[in-house]
Nucleic acid binder design. Structure first.
Lengths: 350, 350
DNA sequence: CTGAAAGCGCTTACAG
DNA sequence: CTGAAAGCGCTTACAG
């Protein structure tokens, strides 16, 4: 109770101690579950705490122990982007990270960051979190530059702990889907379906590293089957949907026969699907189509879109486990999330 | 530096004070931007802090001031639900809340909660947050019961600060879309388009209060135009998509002539759309269709779905402003988020 | 404008 | 098994 500015009354461990007839240190131990306190004492303390509606002040505990029990999660957005239009893949990943952290007893401090005024990754220095997870769009270059520089500067001492998903830089600790395997699965599925003229809509030089990995998996599987890879490049600086639409048009305009398309992400695939549909080209009867990412909208498309889906639960688990290992000073080699093929109408046999 | 267990070296305000040649209290004031310190001193302190890579320990500051600068956001999920399948509306709302909080200088502590093992809203008591925002599915009854009881129990003293979106209980401080107005807009749009046999797929007794409000707005607009309202009830306990599919079938099976459908949410509308499409009924040529919520998938549907979209940015702003007002002990009456009509192919004139 | 000092509410060696 | 005491790193009246 402050003499000058009496602040709101707050129950402390001293009040509980008085109520239970023990010392304050015993209250702390009992409530923390320290096995050294007797069962009888523990019960008495618990009852007193319940009666007084007492909860440990998290800030005092954190100040004393130096641990926060919190992981920071930064979601990188595009400056011009409405929150509603954020990549649904990112949202699913965010959810699985929060769930994984919670399952391991950690809170998640979430921040959407899009521009210079907003960028801030000093969570450990401020003792707001024990580590940092950065996810979000690869396309916000300045944001990733900021985090890359933060990582570099902290070499000398501070020792940040973090992992990323979507970083265009290999020097950051990244985790990604098993893109090669997923692309092989998708391509193999099209081949087994009887397709032989399979185009890949994608890019080799996108900031999005995953796109190249997916093309490589596609090309590898094509060559194994004695087929020639065929890349239709997306144009940079457009929405994914528009990239898909234009690539579909370019593909048709080329005049080269095509019976199937592997698009390197679902949103590009959905754009291509709409363009094909509007041009009267039946999917899958004339051209089969498969995407990558397993976003929810792919299931709602007409026809429903086949895709390659990462195990989102595994993704969250892996990111959190890798981060916790880094915090504990242990090594953790795995950085690929397993994927599965999801077959829907868009690749079914006519 | 602890003698027994030397913890990791940490720069404190005392180190900065020594470096800058001032007292520790001056460092604190200078870094907090207290206008009482001279410009020269402030610069010297800032330089010393930069040189030593010093950041204020957030836990110590919070312990001292009693404020956390943090808002807790609880997202209520369904226990059986994959994170990936969470309602996209909820994710968009989460994003706008985090952005609004950030714009007002608050951090957001986000937690996905789905069941008894997981439910926890004691953020203020633990001094983890200054207030609480609860959003998410209305369909998790036990979770809302938990929060309702928490609200009741805290009457006697603690005084929780919070706001909700999606609560089935009116006693909690709720914020919702302007559902009446949105439904009137949607229905009026169908009428202007020339439709007269307009069904509403929805429910009067759903836990989701918003559904009844939307039906009421629809019925009001119908009656104003001298048309008879026609409710096709959804079945409980199914996914939104399946509810939409079945309602569409029931509507057709009734034999009653129908030229337009207003569905009380986009996901139900998308289910209805797929059912109609699979049955060969052209949308909008034979039946026009409009939903509510403005989720991203509605734009990707074939044909793109007309809808009523709440202003997500305003929603996040309003929830955060209302919560901050409650924390400050001020009143804040507004609880409706404005909506706009989004016209797409599914209601265009043939 | 600046400094010395108190105190926020815990956890944890240390002593018994 | 329990208690007395130190100390985590700040902010802020109070005094000058």
């Amino acid at each position: 109770m402050d003499k000058v500015k009496p602040r709101a009354f707050r129950v402390t461990s001293f009040d509980v101690a008085a109520e239970a007839g023990v010392s304050q240190s015993t209250v702390s131990r009992a409530l923390a579950g320290d096995p050294v306190v007797s069962e009888a004492t523990r019960l008495r303390v618990a009852e007193a705490a319940r009666k007084l509606n007492y909860f440990v002040d998290n800030n005092a505990a954190r100040l004393r122990t130096g641990k926060t029990g919190t992981l920071a999660v930064v979601v990188i957005c595009r400056p011009d982007e409405d929150r509603k239009d954020l990549n649904p893949f990112t949202y699913a990943l965010l959810g699985s990270i929060c769930a994984a952290a919670s399952a391991r007893g950690y809170e998640t401090l979430v921040s959407f960051q899009d521009g210079p005024a907003n960028l801030s990754g000093r969570y450990e220095e401020q003792r707001k979190a024990d580590g940092l997870i950065v996810i979000g769009t690869t396309q916000n270059g300045p944001a990733w530059d900021y985090y890359r520089d933060l990582g570099r500067s902290s070499e000398d001492g501070a020792g940040m702990h973090w992992v990323c998903w979507g970083s265009p830089y290999d020097e950051l600790e990244w985790i990604r889907s098993d893109n090669h395997e997923g692309a092989r699965l998708a391509t193999g599925h099209l081949i087994e379906r009887g397709c032989g003229k399979i185009a890949c809509i994608g890019s080799l030089d996108s900031l999005q590293r995953q796109f190249k990995e997916r093309y490589d998996g596609y090309a590898e599987r094509m060559e194994r089957a004695g087929l020639e890879p065929w890349l239709v490049e997306i144009e940079h600086g457009l929405s994914r949907e528009e990239q898909g639409r234009r690539a579909a048009r370019a593909l048709l305009a080329s005049g080269r026969p095509c019976d199937a398309i592997f698009a390197v992400c679902d949103e590009i695939a959905l754009g291509a699907l709409r363009e094909l549909t509007e041009l009267g080209i039946k999917v899958p009867q004339r051209i089969a189509l498969i995407g990558f990412d397993g976003i929810r909208a792919s299931a709602n498309a007409m026809p429903p879109l086949s895709t390659v889906q990462p195990d989102f639960t595994a993704a969250g688990d892996l990111m959190v486990d890798k981060l916790l290992a880094a915090i504990a000073g242990e090594s953790h080699e795995q950085r690929r999330v397993p994927v599965t093929l999801v077959v829907r109408e868009s690749t079914r046999r006519g």
